[in-house]
Design a protein around this nucleic acid. Structure first.
Length: 909
RNA sequence: GGGCGACUAGCUCAGUUGGUUAGAGCGCUCCCCUCACACGGGAGAGGUCGAAGGUUCAAGUCCUUCGUCGCCCACCA
C-alpha cells in the first residue's frame, strides 16, 4: 500500500474538502431523542451582512473546540448557528450602498427600501455562513436561524405583547439620545463617550431692571437659543439678590427667569447655569421641576430650526461659531477657556449625539433585572437557575450595571427590523398592541388604523435567542431537551447589550436562566492595543490568514493565546509557529506511513497492527513486558488527557493547547519516535510488531486529542489510519480517555533519567565543539545498581541519541582525563584527548561550586530555622532536606574535580 | 468622577489556592541539509518578576502606597 504524501503540509488542498464533507454529511445534526448528557450552545449570531472578522474567528474557534470536545466525549450535542439582522448597522450599509449608486433611500420609500435590504441580505447574507462552514464549525445547519425570519418575528411579537400587557413596555415622551446621522433614537448603551479638548464659553446675560449681568459658562453655546431659564444654587450668596429676577436671553431677546436649584454646582464655571430643557438631560430635569418651557431648536439632522430665529437652517456647529461671533460683537462674551469634556457619540456613526425630546417606546427594567441579579449573585455549582460568569471580574461589572439599570429605549426610527406591533387609531390616537394585525381599534373600534412606523432595537430580538431558536413558546422536543443551553460564549463588549438582556428575558419568559455559564472571551487587539476594526484598517482578515497559514493553524494559534481575562494580540510570528506545528503533525504522519510501507514489504499485515478495536489494548507487550518507552509515552498521554480535560472544563484554552503541543512535539516526536525508529524495522518481528501497534495506538489517540483544536488536519490523517476503517469522521469518534493502565510512574522517572543523561552527553559534546556527526565514546559511573542497570539496558538508545561509539557503565568512580560532568547520583565522562582550555574549565567549576554554595547556605539556614521546620508542611521540609544533600554531594564532586585539575595544572608549570 | 486590568527574558505572553533552581513561543548565538519534517534537529545565552514598604518560617503570588499604560461605566453645564 504505497502512499503519496506531500513533504510539507498544504492545508489549502485539504481543508475545503472536509469543510464540505462535514456539511454535506450533516454530521452534526442534533437528535433530541438521543441518549447522553446534554451540551447545547447557540451561536452569538453575527451580523447577516457582515463577514467573518478576527473576533468571530476567536469566538467560533472557542465554541467549536468546546463543542467538538463534548461531542467526542459522548454528550448529546447541539451547536445552533444563525445570524442577526443587525438593524441599524445593516440599514446604514445599504443606505450607503444605494447612495453610492446615486439613490436616495428616503425617496425610494419604505417598501422598496425593505425589498432592497432583503435582496442585499440574500446576496451578502450567505457570505458569513459560508465562511463559518469554511472554517469547519461543527454546527447543526438544519437548525440555522435568522433573527428577522417570520418564525422569529412571531416570537418577538409574542414577547412585545406580553410585556406590554404586563405594563413593562410603555410609550413616553422623554429626553432621548438622538443620532442626527442615523436619524434615530439610541439606547444609552449605543452612546459612547469620548474625552475631547473643548472650550467653556462664558456668556453674559443681562439682568432685567438692573445694569448687572449674570454670566453663565457653557460648552454648547448653540443651545442657548433654547434657554428657558438661568439657574443658580439656592445658597449661593453671590447670586442671592438675583433669584426670582429675570434675565434677557442674548441674541433672542427673550426674558427668562432666574431660578434657584440645588442641582447647580457652585464650583463649576461661574456657578450660574443656563437651562435648555430640550437639549440637555440635567436641564430637562430642571425644566420639569420648575415647569419651564421646552424649546427644541434643532431639526432631525441637527440643523437649527425655526425656533432658532436668525440661525435657522444652519448646522449646529456652524451656528455655534456664528453665535460666539455675534456674542463677541455685542460684548456679551466674557471669556473663553479650555475645557476637556466627555462628549457623547453614536456608536455606529460616531456623530455627536443630540439630546432631544421625543416620544418613544421604553422597556421598564428594574423589575426584570431583580431576578437576573439574583441568578448571578447566588451562583453556586449545581444550583438551579443560577449563572456562572467567567472571568470573575466581569461578574462584578455585570452586577454593577444591573444594580443601576435604567429603562431601555426600544423603538428605532429605522425601516429594517421588527416593526413595532402597535397600531394607532387615526381618530382618537388609541393604542392597540396585538400579535396579529388588528382590524379595529381595541378601545374605540375604529377601523382607521395605522401601525407605528418604528422598528425595535436589534437587541430586542437577539435577547430572545437562546429560547426563540429552540421553539419557544411551544414546548418542542428541542426546547425540552436543549433549553436551558449549557453555555454562552461571547465577547465582554456585549455583556450589557446582549448577555444581561438574555438573562432577564430568559428568566421572565421561561422561568429558567437561559444558560448555566457565560464565558466572556478576549478581544483581539492590534499591536498598539486597539480593538481591531475594519473601518480603521487595523483588522486582520481571518479568511486571508486562514488561506495563508491554514485554518487549523489559526485555530490553534488563537486557542494557545486565549488565556481568560486577557486580550489577544495576534502576529504573523505566532501564526507561523502554529503552522509549523501543523506541519510537524503532518510530517509525523508522513514518517509513519513511509516506514510502514517498508515494514509491510517484510510481510506484516496492516490489520494486525492497527485494526479497529486494537487501540483498546494498548500499550502492547513484547516478551511479556511493555517496553519502557511505550509505558512512558502512554503515561504521558494519560496525564496530557487529564490536563487538557481539566483546562477545557475551565476555559483555559491556552493551557490545553500548550499541553497537546508539548505532548505531540516534545514527547511523541522528539523522544518517542526517535527512540523507536530502529525497532520499527527490527529483525525481531515481535518487537517490531509491538512497536508498530503502540505507535499507531498512540498516534490515533494523539489525533483524537488534537481534533477539537485542529479538525481538518486530524480528520485527514485519521482517515488514513487502519483504526478509522469504516468510520465516518474522527469528530464522531471518542475523545481519548485517561486510563489507569496507562499510568506508570516508574517509567516516567526512569525515562526522565535517561533523557537527562542523553541531554547532558549532548551538551558536553556541544560545549567542546565536537563534530555533531562524530561518534564519541562515553562512560557513566554510579554507586546505584538500579541506575546502572537501567542505563545498561538502554545503552543502545543512549548511544544513538547522543551519537556515541560506546557507552560503558561502571560502579566505581571514573578515571582518566576528558570532560567530566558529575551529579549527585552519577558521573559522566567523555575521554577527549585533552581539555581544550583547562583555565576556562577551572573557572567554570569555581562558578558552579560558588552557585551551589549559595544554594546550600540558604537551604541550611532554612532547615536550621526552627520556625520553618515547625510551621512548614512536612513534605516541604523533607524535600528541602533531600535537595540539600544532593547539592552538597554535587558540590563535593566538583571540588574534587577542581582539585585534581588545579593539581595537574601546577605540575604542568 | 467612579470601577477594573496590566506591568515577569530583546519581543508577545503563561505562571489555579503563597512552598525545592520562575516557564513557553518567537527572536538571538553555536553546531548539524542524519533516509518524517530546515515550517526541521541538537546545544546555549538572556529575568534582582514596574518601585518602595509590610504580612509570613516562606512572596512573582497576599496587603498598603506610588509610578506608567490601557479599558469600562458616568446626565456636572
Amino acid at each position: 500500500m504505497a502512499r503519496e504524501i506531500a513533504k510539507a503540509y498544504e492545508p489549502q488542498r485539504i481543508e475545503p474538502r472536509w469543510a464540505k464533507f462535514w456539511v454535506k454529511e450533516a454530521l452534526f445534526e442534533a437528535d433530541p431523542h438521543a441518549p447522553g448528557p446534554v451540551f447545547s450552545i447557540v451561536i452569538p449570531p453575527p451580523n447577516v451582512t457582515g463577514s467573518l472578522h478576527i473576533g468571530h474567528m476567536l469566538e467560533h474557534t472557542e465554541i467549536d473546540i468546546l463543542t467538538r470536545w463534548h461531542r467526542m466525549r459522548g454528550y448529546n450535542t447541539l451547536f445552533l448557528p444563525g445570524t442577526d439582522h443587525a438593524g441599524i448597522s445593516t440599514q446604514r450599509v445599504v443606505v450607503k450602498y444605494l447612495a453610492d449608486q446615486g439613490i436616495d433611500y428616503q425617496k425610494l420609500g419604505r417598501d422598496e427600501f425593505e425589498k432592497q435590504v432583503w435582496k442585499w441580505k440574500e446576496e451578502a447574507g450567505g457570505q458569513i455562513t459560508e465562511q463559518m462552514k469554511g472554517i469547519g464549525e461543527s454546527c447543526d445547519w438544519s437548525r440555522e436561524k435568522f433573527t428577522l425570519s417570520p418564525e422569529m418575528s412571531r416570537k418577538v411579537r409574542e414577547v412585545f405583547v406580553r410585556l406590554y400587557k404586563e405594563g413593562l413596555i410603555y410609550r413616553a415622551t422623554r429626553l432621548v439620545n438622538w443620532c442626527p446621522d442615523c436619524l434615530t433614537v439610541l439606547s444609552d448603551l449605543e452612546v459612547v463617550h469620548e474625552e475631547r479638548q473643548g472650550h467653556l464659553w462664558y456668556i453674559k446675560y443681562p439682568v432685567v431692571g438692573t445694569k448687572e449681568f449674570l454670566t453663565v459658562a457653557t460648552t454648547r453655546p448653540e443651545t442657548m437659543l433654547g434657554d428657558t431659564a438661568v439657574a443658580v444654587h439656592p445658597e449661593d450668596e453671590r447670586y442671592r439678590h438675583l433669584m426670582g429676577k429675570k434675565a434677557v436671553l442674548p441674541l433672542m431677546n427673550r426674558e427668562i427667569p432666574i431660578i434657584a436649584d440645588k442641582l447647580v454646582d457652585r464650583e463649576f464655571g461661574t456657578g450660574a447655569l443656563k437651562v435648555t430643557p430640550a437639549h440637555d438631560p440635567n436641564d430637562f430635569e430642571l425644566g420639569k421641576r420648575h415647569h419651564l418651557a421646552e424649546i427644541d431648536v434643532m431639526t432631525d439632522d441637527a440643523h437649527m430650526n425655526a425656533n432658532a430665529g436668525a440661525y435657522a437652517g444652519m448646522d449646529r456647529f456652524a451656528a455655534r461659531k456664528k453665535i460666539v461671533e455675534d456674542l463677541k460683537a455685542q460684548g456679551l462674551l466674557e471669556k473663553i477657556s479650555d475645557h476637556t469634556n466627555a462628549i457623547s457619540l453614536c456608536e455606529r456613526s460616531k456623530t455627536a449625539v443630540e439630546p432631544r425630546i421625543s416620544t418613544q417606546w421604553f422597556c421598564k427594567m428594574k423589575g426584570l433585572a431583580a431576578p437576573a441579579i439574583k441568578a448571578v449573585e447566588e451562583y453556586a455549582p449545581g444550583k438551579e437557575n443560577t449563572i456562572y460568569i467567567i472571568p470573575e471580574n466581569r461578574r462584578t461589572e455585570y452586577l454593577n450595571w444591573m444594580y443601576n439599570i435604567r429603562d431601555w429605549t426600544i423603538s428605532r426610527q429605522l425601516w429594517w427590523g421588527h416593526r413595532i406591533p402597535a397600531w394607532y387609531c387615526k381618530e382618537n390616537r388609541h393604542i392597540t398592541v396585538a400579535r396579529k394585525t388588528p382590524a379595529q381599534c381595541a378601545t374605540c373600534g375604529s377601523s382607521n388604523l395605522e401601525q407605528d412606523p418604528d422598528v425595535l432595537d436589534t437587541w430586542f430580538s437577539s435577547q430572545l435567542w437562546p429560547f426563540s431558536t429552540l421553539g419557544w413558546p411551544e414546548e418542542t422536543a428541542d426546547f425540552k431537551k436543549y433549553y436551558p443551553t449549557t453555555l454562552m460564549v461571547t465577547g465582554y463588549d456585549i455583556l450589557f447589550f446582549w448577555v444581561a438582556r438574555m438573562i432577564m428575558m430568559g428568566l421572565h419568559f421561561t422561568g429558567r436562566a437561559p444558560f448555566r455559564t457565560v464565558y466572556l472571551h478576549s478581544l483581539v487587539r492590534t499591536g498598539s492595543g486597539e480593538k481591531m476594526s475594519k473601518s480603521k484598517g487595523t483588522g486582520l482578515d481571518p479568511v486571508a490568514l486562514n488561506q495563508q497559514y491554514g485554518t487549523d493553524a489559526m485555530r490553534f494559534c488563537l486557542a494557545s493565546m486565549a488565556a481568560p481575562g486577557t486580550d489577544i494580540i495576534l502576529s504573523d510570528d505566532k501564526l507561523a509557529s502554529s503552522r509549523n506545528f501543523a506541519n510537524k503533525i503532518w510530517n509525523a504522519a508522513r514518517f509513519l506511513f513511509v516506514n510502514l510501507d517498508k515494514f509491510e514489504q517484510g510481510g506484516a499485515k496492516l490489520e494486525d497492527l492497527a485494526a479497529p478495536g486494537v487501540r483498546a489494548k494498548a500499550p502492547y507487550a513484547a516478551g511479556g513486558k511493555v517496553p519502557l518507552v511505550d509505558s512512558w509515552l502512554f503515561a504521558r498521554l494519560t496525564s496530557t488527557i487529564d490536563m487538557v480535560n481539566d483546562a477545557l472544563a475551565n476555559y483555559r484554552f491556552h493551557e490545553a493547547a500548550q499541553g497537546v503541543y508539548q505532548f505531540f512535539w516534545g514527547d511523541f516526536c522528539d523522544w518517542y519516535i526517535e527512540w523507536v525508529k530502529p525497532e520499527l524495522q527490527s529483525a525481531d518481528r515481535e518487537r517490531a510488531t509491538v512497536a508498530w501497534k503502540n505507535l499507531f495506538a498512540a498516534f490515533d489517540a494523539a489525533l483524537r486529542l488534537l481534533h477539537p483544536f485542529m479538525p481538518f488536519l486530524t480528520e485527514e490523517l485519521w482517515h488514513q489510519l487502519p483504526q478509522a476503517a469504516g468510520a465516518k469522521s474522527i469528530a464522531l469518534d471518542r475523545f481519548p480517555e485517561a486510563q489507569a493502565r496507562w499510568k506508570n510512574s516508574t517509567a516516567t522517572d526512569e525515562l526522565a533519567l535517561i533523557q537527562e543523561v542523553v541531554t547532558k552527553l549532548r551538551a558536553m559534546r556541544a560545549e567542546k565543539r565536537q563534530d555533531a556527526k562524530k561518534k564519541l565514546p562515553a562512560e557513566l559511573s554510579s554507586s546505584n545498581p538500579a541506575l546502572r542497570k537501567l542505563l545498561e539496558d538502554n545503552s543502545q538508545v543512549v548511544q544513538r541519541l547522543a551519537v556515541l561509539s560506546s557507552f560503558e557503565v561502571f560502579s566505581e568512580g571514573l578515571k582518566g582525563t576528558g570532560m567530566i560532568v558529575q551529579t549527585a547520583i552519577y558521573d559522566l565522562r567523555i575521554p577527549f584527548e585533552a581539555i581544550i582550555d583547562p583555565l576556562a574549565e577551572i573557572a567554570r567549576l569555581k562558578r558552579e561550586i560558588e552557585r551551589l554554595e549559595k544554594d546550600i547556605q540558604s537551604k541550611k539556614a532554612r532547615l536550621d530555622d526552627e520556625d520553618f521546620t515547625r510551621k512548614a508542611p512536612e513534605n516541604v521540609v523533607k524535600n528541602m532536606g533531600i535537595a540539600l544533600v544532593e547539592r552538597q554531594l554535587e558540590q563535593k564532586k566538583l571540588k574534587a574535580q577542581l582539585e585534581q585539575l588545579e593539581g595537574s595544572q601546577a605540575v604542568g608549570h
